[in-house]
Computed example of a mutant assay.
Amino acid sequence: MTKLLLSLHVLAAIVAVGPVTVAASMFPATLRRALGDPGHGDALTAVTALRTLHRICRVYAGVGIAVPVFGFATASSLGVLGDTWLIVSILLTAAAAGVLALLILPAQDRALAEAGTSGAPSSSPSAPLSPGRLAMLTGIFNLLWATVTVLMIVRPGSTTGA
């Protein structure tokens, strides 16, 4: 049963987290193009691409809930729920989910609303983050997931071997 749970956990991570990291990483560069000349064909195509990238991020973020669910089941099956490496991984996963749900997705929503209407950044408090700041947040999100991946492979202090 442990091997099945671990396989499902890894598959869920690949299928769910992979598309989010790629789509979120592509969003800032596409946003730069969309905020260019709003009447230009490339800008219109970029807005369509932004909608697609945002939808990928939202849908796969929801699917990504399977990753910690299978992760907890696997950890319980292995008897490692109290191990430090796992607790740190859980905290980093929660931080990555928070960055995605509370910062990246809302910023993408605001960017889509703005890119679809004007193309020129507004000065309102609800204005989207600049593409550079959104890229930074996405980089943080990706770095958190990369760290979790390394911890899952290395498992420092784990008694399960590695």
Rank of each mutant, 00 (worst) to 15 (best):
K3F: 14
G62A: 07
A61R: 09
V88M: 07
I65G: 05
L31K: 05
L92F: 04
P28K: 03
V80C: 07
G82Q: 15
A120E: 11
A135D: 10
L44T: 14
S76A: 15
T147H: 06
A146Y: 06
G62C: 09
D83G: 07
A24T: 02
H9G: 04
T138L: 04
V67F: 14
R33F: 08
L100P: 00
T74E: 12
G62P: 11
A127C: 08
V148C: 03
S126R: 12
G41L: 15
M1C: 04
T48G: 13
A12H: 10
V99E: 06
A43V: 11
D37P: 09
L112Q: 00
G64V: 15
M136A: 13
V10A: 05
L44W: 13
S76K: 11
L100V: 00
A101P: 04
A61C: 10
T21G: 14
A73K: 00
D83K: 05
T74L: 12
V99C: 02
V17I: 10
P19R: 03
A12S: 14
L92S: 03
A115Q: 01
V88L: 06
S124V: 12
T149E: 12
V59T: 11
T52R: 09
G161A: 08
A16D: 03
V67W: 14
G62W: 09
G82M: 15
I65W: 15
T30Q: 05
T84L: 14
Q108T: 05
L143Q: 09
T149R: 13
A16F: 12
L11T: 10
A94K: 02
A61Q: 10
G18W: 08
G62L: 09
T84F: 11
T52C: 11
S130D: 07
S89R: 05
A111G: 04
G139T: 07
T93G: 10
V150M: 09
D37A: 12
